[in-house]
Amino acid sequence: MKTTSESRAGRASLMVAHCAGMVDLVALPVWVGVLISGYGLDPQQAGGLATLFLVGAVCASLFVAPRSARLPARATAAGGFAVAALAFGAVGLVNDYAAMAVLHVVAGLAAATALSVTHAAIGGSGNPHRLFALVGFALGVFGILFMGGVPKLVASLGAPALFWSFCGIMAVAACVAALAFPTARAVDSGAQHTAGRLPRAVWLAAIGVSCMGLVQAMIFAFVERIGAERGFDGAAVAGVLIALGFVNLLPAPLAAFLQKRVNPRTVLVCGPVVQAALALLMTQSQAFLPYAAAAACFAAVMILTHTFAFGLLATLDPSGRAVGATPAMLMTGAAIGPILGGTVVKLSGYPSLGLAAAAIAICAVVCFLPSRADRAVLSPS
């Protein structure tokens, strides 16, 4: 069956693939928390395993993105998710740290291979911003289901149940991709092979996305642990993570609504500032309500800003190379985040995470500032 990114089956497949490939954006607090509480690892070791998954993801995306137009998209997506399912299933069967580390790398390589062709297909659609908002909404729904179900499975069956859940998610994505992943892209074939250097604005936007990904992973990985360290009730903290999933439903439709009404650069410049403010509130507050409000809204800022960044990159680089590499952009920062956050916590405690986030946010804002070259292209019409 031939499908495109504009068909219902194609869009549904891209939604499932995006959710599976971006599982870290939803699962990181539970992931790191289970590694600490269920496997007895310290924050640095737990963050290191998540980082290894993301390092593998970055390497795969950097390799796949320039070649995405020449790869068999359906086979690549289905095969990538299938290998990731096997790797995560194996993590649930071992306790040796070295074996877990190798399997995390394999899972990251495989999942990001599939995610890169997914994002390339989205970037080749008629309206990349709108389609990315749609898959972002699907990620919000997936987050609610994940947070509502997986922690209960872990509590009932033990820590390995987290990785068996990841295995199941990747297996479903592999089956859906094999049946309905888009086999044709709507973008002009000539644009796919545009040669030459990427514009400077693309590289700056990529660095900005990486900075936001770094802050997202550095703080988000320890949301559950911050609550536990402050002595907040475990059920209340779990409720915050579920509420976070509902809040994550809002940024995607908001991004679609604002597409023609707001200059993307406005959103991109404001995003890191809001992200840093929430990080400071979460890490400095000793009261539950400020912590809960900041935690519930934290991931939504990244989802909204990332949607506008994706649309910006698709506009600045019609060849599709930049959007195919968005997993690398996002996960380069995200790969550093868990181990950097774990190291900061180990050396200086949780309040220092917010200060580090504020410093990184300044770098992101500088990268996202509009350049003279793209103001005319990106003005809302």
Rank of each mutant, 00 (worst) to 15 (best):
R8A: 15
R8F: 14
R8S: 12
R11E: 12
R11P: 03
A12G: 10
L14A: 00
M15A: 13
M15I: 08
A17E: 07
H18V: 13
A20T: 11
V23M: 04
V23Y: 07
D24N: 10
L25H: 15
L25F: 12
L25W: 14
V26Y: 00
V26C: 06
A27R: 08
A27F: 01
A27G: 11
A27C: 07
L28W: 10
V30H: 12
V30M: 13
V30A: 11
V32S: 01
V32P: 04
V32W: 01
G33S: 08
G33H: 04
V34D: 03
L35P: 04
S37P: 12
S37R: 13
G40V: 15
D42Y: 03
P43I: 00
Q44E: 15
G47V: 00
G47D: 05
L49E: 00
A50P: 09
T51F: 11
L52M: 09
F53S: 04
L54Q: 12
V55C: 05
V55E: 03
G56N: 01
G56D: 03
G56M: 00
A57I: 11
A57V: 09
C59K: 09
A60R: 01
A60H: 05
S61C: 08
S61M: 04
S61R: 05
S61P: 06
L62S: 07
